[in-house]
Every structure is written in structure tokens, then in C-alpha cells.
Design a protein around this nucleic acid. Structure first.
Lengths: 302, 302
DNA sequence: CGGCGGTCATGTATTTATGTATAGCGGCGG
DNA sequence: CCGCCGCTATACATAAATACATGACCGCCG
């Protein structure tokens, strides 16, 4: 290791990892294939190890390359965060804001809210990371996050928007065939949709309704989104946000009076971003949009 | 933001922040002051804001620059961590590699090669399966195999190392008693060592030298290893690898000019293992070791 | 089996970035 | 006040990185 390698090599390295070939990486970065190839050569020289096995249909990363990948990813997210920070301070509401939310929220709830936001501010770019793996606000992997648990960090600007109510739902078709349970006890005879693993709200459900533990589940999935899809497909009775089911005339809320889980919801932003117009605007839009959404959950169906 | 700025600009930026002047940063990075100045210019252009107030005795960071500093620090520590990880991983070849070879190769040829390999990589465990029943690489009964026939499987990484020459040999003691045959025809009167069953190289021998079929064999065994041992014991004249006999002063190569069978040799590894350092290292060692071995077969005896 | 689309490797020309040399500015101390 | 030493900015020559063009290889498909 004579001199530190150019940091650009790390970018090329990561892009090759992501795309699997020098050519694809070159297209991504607006460079050419020989250039990327030389970057990889130089980096291999610098670290003194082989990073890729070259073949005629792409590059295969070595174990070493896979070990280094997380660092390269961190470099990329940090560089992106730096740029976002820089551009966020320019008074106007434009540029990119990165929002992190759970899968269900990100896919089913946020899109209309974001649509309104972008209607109001056409120059605003939104990046939505819909994943149940939560991103780190402190390192600015995201600018704003919608969280289902109360954040404990101090340097965060936190706004609680209320409780999203969860309830048992099933497709009308399923109920026509199997009947509609009128009491919790009657659930026992039904095809139930359950979860693969314990998440926070599962634990809350078991605490509130210990009986759930003894139920037999006909279908299990680890994805909340797949769970919701299973309900819509008529597989059986499952738990989902009442606000999601309400607009869909085929979905029926079951045991509404006997069973409800409140899902506490927070919108969170890094303290230092509150002076950034674009982040403030997005933060406010998320808060108001989620407040409306929660309100709609409570309304009786039209 | 037209194109993403070079990540090297971040490094220059951070170094200027740390040292307070372009010149000092240039010294630190092994660059020159105009270069660092251009990097800062370019970065300011890219983020669209002034990062430093230039004065004749140094650069004064703006608030923006101070806001960006934490990200730049993260970049630096991450880049350093990446390099450290790389250097700590380098040369970390350890674990077990399972090698499959024929009995003769496994017992007579490979041990010195494996000894060198383990000398170079003390953490490497080698399992040697020396058997003429060939193990299935596809099912990973072995990681690497030395084969005497060209493999046809697709997902294998194959390297042909050349032909191992076979020839007639006998112990000096035997020849002193029975004389040394000078022509193929003279073999007829000798005690010959033969094989119990037809193997691939027997068929090749019969094809190249049909006369062998009519010879009378005084001793037969189904094991190539026992065959070789029989030669060394002075039972008679048999076929073995010239490279095995050469270092042994008691063994004499007979009819060297009239008779030779080339035994094609391949080193084979499952495709998916080529990114594993220990398998790569072992593979390369086998290839080189066998190339040397084959070269030694051709040399005239000292 | 031959064309096609994809890949990587290599050699050459050109653009780009860098180094060198120099000029100008400001502070500091004799 | 002047000389010295640090800094930045600029102009020009040089070195380095890049793009371009080409060739070879592999898998795919009609």
C-alpha cells in the first residue's frame, strides 16, 4: 500500500458489484468500460488482492469483494447524504428528499400523500425507501422516516401522528363460503393468516388478545405486504390496517367491536434538517397526510 | 447538479477543513496547491454554494462547509475501514479443502506439492482422497480433483496440465538377473506385470501397442499402486510413470524410445469455488506442481 | 452451425487533470 | 520601512487518465 487509492475507485468498485459487469457499471457512471476496468485493476493493486474473477460474461466478485461491499455502500450513502445536505440549504423547495417507511406504509399509504406533495412543489424529488429494515436517520440514510415505534434518539425531531387501527379482515368471497364469525371464539374454525416471525406489533397483539396464540393458522408469511395481499386474495381471515381495507368494497372488517390493535405512528426527522425548506415541507406533508389517513380509518364506511 | 462530483473532491475538501489551507492540504495528500484549489472550486460548483472564504493566509470555512464536515469525516473513516478490512483479510486462506486424485497420483505425486502449499499457507487444512473411484465434483464430494480424462461437465473450472508419460520400468536387480530387453519383441521372454481389469489407459496402451495383448503376464493386480510396488520389488517389468521412477536409482526405464503412453491430466474445480481464496490457492498450487512434475518427467536423468 | 448481442482485453489518440514556475497579496519582525 | 515567509491565483508544460476503435471470447437462437 504505497498511497491511498483514489476514492473514485471505490465508487467504480461498488458500481461493478451492483451491476455485475464493467460495461454496465461504465454506463451507470457515464464512463467507459476500459476506464472502469483500470479502476478495478488499480484497486486490486492497492489492496493487494483479487476482487473479481473476470469472465467473458461479466465479473464474479471474490469473497474479499463481498466483505468490502458494506463499506463501499456506506461511502455511497454518505456521499449522497452530503450532497442532499448541501442542496437542502438553498432556500427553494427543490432537490431530493429521501423518505423511509415500512413496506405497507410506503407502498399502500404514502403514495397519495407524496403525490399531493409533489403537486404542490413540482421541483421536489422524492426517494421512497419502503422496507421493514429501518434506516439510520443519524447517518442520514434517510431524511425523514415514518416509524411504528417511538424513537429514542435525542437529536431527532419527532411528531406522533396517532394510532393506526388494525383489525381482522377477509375478502367477501371467503365469507360467503365460510360464514362470518361473530365472536372471537368463532375464529377457531376459520382459515387464519398468520406471521412467520415475531414483530413488535405481533407481541402487542398477543398481549392484548392472548387467545390469538392458540389459533391455528392456515397461511403464514413474514411479509406484512404479502399478508395483506393474502387477505385480498381470499385466502382467509387476517389482520390489516382498517384504513387500507375501507376503500375496497370486497374487503370486510370483522369483529370490529371486539378486536382492535392500535399501531402507534411517528414521523421523524433529523433535528438539523428543520431549517431545510424542502425537508420541512415534506415533513409537514407526511404528518398531515398520515393524520388524515388515521382519521379516515375511524370513519364509518359510506 | 449535473453529474456527481468525484469522490476525491470530498477527500480534498476534508483535508482542507482539517488543515486550514490549500497548501497544507496539498502537502498532506501528496498533491499540489493548485490541484487542491481546483478540487475545491469544482466541489463548490457542484453543490452550488461557497465552501470557503479565501484569504491570503488560508481558507475560512463557511457554515455550509461546517455542516458538510461530518459527512466528509464519515467518508474518511469508512474508506480507512475498508482498507483495513482488505489488508486484514488478505492472505487469510484457512479452512479445509478436499482434494480427490487417483491412488498413484494422490500417494506418490501430490504429497510434496501439498507440503509446499501448506508451508505457504499454514492455516490451510487439506483432505486428500486418493482413490481410483472418482468422486463427484458436482455434488461437492471433493472441492478439487486431479483427473486423467477430460471432464465434460459444464460448471467446472478445468485446467489441462499436459501429459504424464508412462513407460516400461524394472528394478535393476531384476534386469541383472534376466537381462534388459532392447526391443519390444524381446519383452516376450520376460516376467511382465499386468492389470486385472481394463482401465482407460490400458485401452489406450492396447490401441497404441497392440502387441501388448499377446504378452504373457507373470503378475497381475487391479491396483496401479500395487503394480508400481511390484516393479520396485523386482517382480518383473511393468508400466509406470517415468517421473516416479526417475528419482529412484534402482529403477530403470526400459525401451524408452520405443514405448511411451501419454496420460492426459486435468485439474478440475467446481465453478462456484473459484472465488473462495483457499480453493483458488490450492487449485493454483496443484496446477503448478503438476506442471513441474510433468516437466521433470521429460528431463534426462542426472 | 453461423450470426448476433453481450462481455472483457488491448493499443492508440485525445482530452483532462496535474505539476511547475511565477506573480501578487498580507502579516510579521528586525 | 524593507525583507522574509506564508498563503492564493494564474499561465503554461507535462503527465495521466480517459475515450475510441478493435479483436477475441462466450452464450444464445434461429
Amino acid at each position: 500500500m504505497t498511497a491511498e487509492p483514489s476514492w473514485d475507485f471505490y465508487r467504480s468498485f461498488l458500481t461493478v458489484l451492483r451491476h455485475g459487469s464493467l460495461s454496465a457499471a461504465a454506463r451507470e457512471l457515464g464512463l467507459t468500460q476500459p476506464t472502469i476496468g483500470r479502476h478495478i485493476d488499480a484497486l486490486e493493486e492497492a489492496v493487494g488482492a483479487e476482487l473479481f474473477i473476470r469472465s467473458s460474461n461479466g465479473l464474479l466478485p471474490t469473497d474479499m469483494a463481498l466483505d468490502l461491499r458494506p463499506y463501499a455502500e456506506t461511502l455511497a450513502t454518505t456521499a449522497a447524504a452530503l450532497l442532499r445536505t448541501a442542496s437542502s440549504q438553498r432556500g427553494k423547495v427543490e432537490g431530493t428528499v429521501r423518505i423511509s417507511a415500512s413496506e405497507v406504509i410506503g407502498i399502500e399509504v404514502l403514495p397519495p400523500i407524496i403525490a399531493d406533495l409533489q403537486e404542490a412543489y413540482p421541483g421536489l424529488q422524492v426517494e421512497l425507501s419502503a422496507s421493514d429494515a429501518l434506516e439510520d436517520l443519524m447517518n442520514r440514510e434517510a431524511d425523514i422516516a415514518v416509524r411504528m415505534a417511538e424513537p429514542r434518539q435525542d437529536a431527532l425531531l419527532v411528531r406522533r401522528v396517532g394510532d393506526i387501527p388494525l383489525g381482522f379482515h377477509a375478502h367477501r368471497r371467503y365469507l360467503e363460503r365460510h360464514g362470518t364469525p361473530q365472536t372471537m371464539a368463532e375464529l377457531a374454525g376459520h382459515r387464519l393468516i398468520g406471521f412467520d416471525r415475531q414483530t413488535a406489533y405481533i407481541r402487542m397483539m398477543l398481549k392484548l388478545y392472548p387467545v390469538a396464540e392458540q389459533l391455528a393458522y392456515a397461511f403464514r408469511t413474514s411479509s406484512h405486504l404479502a399478508h395483506y395481499t393474502a387477505i385480498r386474495a381470499g385466502i382467509g381471515i387476517g389482520v390489516c390496517q382498517t384504513g387500507l381495507a375501507r376503500p375496497n368494497p370486497d374487503l370486510v372488517h370483522i369483529l370490529a367491536d371486539e378486536f382492535e390493535i392500535p399501531l402507534g405512528t411517528w414521523v421523524v426527522m433529523h433535528e438539523s434538517l428543520k431549517t431545510s425548506p424542502r425537508c420541512r415541507v415534506a415533513f409537514d406533508a407526511l404528518v398531515n397526510g398520515l393524520l388524515n389517513y388515521i382519521r379516515s380509518c375511524r370513519e364509518t364506511r359510506v
